[in-house]
Amino acid sequence: MRIGNRLFPYPTLNNEPSLSEYEATSEFRLCFDDDEDGQLPRTKDGQILKNAFFHLTDSGLISLYEQGLVECGLIIESSASTYRVMKKLTRDPKDYFLKYKDLKGTVSVSAYLYATEEINEYSNPSFQEAYKPYKFNIEKYDILAIDDGFRFQVNIDPTLDNKVASIFTIVPRFTNDKQMSYTYTQNNITIELPQDYYARYDNIKGKADFNNMMFAMIAIPALSGALADMKTYISQGETLDDLTDNYRWLRSVCTSFNRVNGRNLTDDDMEDIDPMVLAQSVLNDATCNGIEEISEHLLRGVDREEEEDEDDE
């Protein structure tokens, strides 16, 4: 939710100075820690709004907050996934986890100070001069202070979100059979789909609800097969260092394993871990995430049908 330049029938304190109707000495803003790149810290399952709290310097609003007449809401919204939640934000730092499974496309994070009950004849010495003579009746849930926060993008397509996915090239094969095949070279893994099915894949891959499932069906079997060969080579005496020198795509697998597990992939891991399990791990658990996406898509369809049936009654 973003307030923007929306007008209210009473003065509001806005983090954007040009929109604020309070004096410049009054401040309200959402605060949090970012990483060294100026981004939200990430895990494989989401991003972290770390040490988040609201900063407020206006004595009148602070008094209302301390009396319990106003609270601060942290709004996390992703319109593409129809996800919207409000969490209570305080002046004490706290971590908030933003799960990728809830989010798609543009995600907005904002904070607002709102009334928890009616406040009659509200005035504030920090109002800009034009509002100082007046008193205002504030209704429950009216917004008194605004920080429209920030936006970021969540791309649930592992081919874009996960660096290891860049090792795949998906191409059509001019044949009438129904079998997918793959080959790997020094640089990448090439997946071939029969031409008719490649065309269907090409049409579906842009549909956000099916990205993980499509990727799981195609990439995980191919990668697990290639990793099974790597496992065989190691059992025959080669080392992971030797293999990553020979197969650049395997370096990306190792990098992703380190990101997910917080440690380096070893020769023993390659021998002990089932290649199918390893493939799922480094590809963002695309199989189960895909099943979840399809399930949510179908449930949304059922909900819409029920709403339409209710409207027809």
Rank of each mutant, 00 (worst) to 15 (best):
residue 254 C to Y: 00
residue 239 T to R: 09
residue 263 R to T: 05
residue 303 D to E: 14
residue 71 E to D: 13
residue 120 N to G: 07
residue 197 Y to V: 02
residue 244 T to I: 14
residue 70 V to R: 10
residue 30 L to S: 03
residue 219 A to Q: 03
residue 43 T to F: 06
residue 277 V to R: 09
residue 279 A to C: 04
residue 68 G to L: 08
residue 274 D to P: 01
residue 6 R to A: 13
residue 191 I to C: 06
residue 138 I to K: 10
residue 188 N to H: 00
residue 291 I to P: 00
residue 124 N to F: 05
residue 260 V to L: 07
residue 44 K to A: 12
residue 236 Q to K: 13
residue 260 V to M: 01
residue 160 L to R: 09
residue 79 S to W: 09
residue 53 F to N: 07
residue 242 D to V: 14
residue 35 D to H: 07
residue 215 F to A: 02
residue 230 M to L: 06
residue 133 P to N: 06
residue 290 G to L: 09
residue 178 K to Q: 06
residue 287 T to Y: 15
residue 287 T to L: 15
residue 10 Y to V: 05
residue 218 I to E: 01
residue 101 K to Y: 04
residue 307 E to H: 11
residue 64 L to N: 11
residue 13 L to T: 05
residue 189 I to T: 07
residue 87 K to M: 11
residue 259 R to M: 08
residue 237 G to M: 03
residue 144 L to P: 01
residue 271 E to N: 10
residue 170 I to M: 01
residue 140 K to V: 12
residue 264 N to E: 15
residue 119 I to C: 10
residue 152 F to K: 11
residue 211 N to C: 14
residue 126 S to L: 06
residue 40 L to K: 09
residue 104 K to S: 09
residue 172 P to R: 04
residue 186 Q to K: 09
residue 25 T to Y: 00
residue 202 D to R: 10
residue 46 G to D: 05
residue 87 K to L: 15
residue 307 E to Q: 15
residue 17 P to Y: 06
residue 116 T to G: 05
residue 113 L to H: 01
residue 27 E to K: 12
residue 80 A to D: 11
residue 166 S to M: 01
residue 310 E to Y: 09
residue 8 F to N: 08
residue 249 W to M: 02
residue 294 I to T: 10
residue 226 A to K: 05
residue 254 C to N: 08
residue 239 T to I: 06
residue 305 E to P: 00
residue 144 L to Q: 05
residue 225 G to W: 01
residue 123 S to G: 15
residue 92 D to E: 12
residue 290 G to K: 09
residue 206 G to L: 08
residue 53 F to W: 11
residue 285 D to L: 12
residue 91 R to A: 06
residue 288 C to K: 11
residue 188 N to I: 02
residue 225 G to V: 03
residue 122 Y to H: 14
residue 18 S to G: 01
residue 12 T to I: 13
residue 249 W to Y: 04
residue 146 I to H: 01
residue 297 H to V: 00
residue 312 D to L: 13
residue 29 R to Q: 12
residue 144 L to A: 10
residue 3 I to F: 03
residue 144 L to N: 05
residue 46 G to F: 08
residue 297 H to I: 00
residue 206 G to A: 04
residue 180 M to L: 15
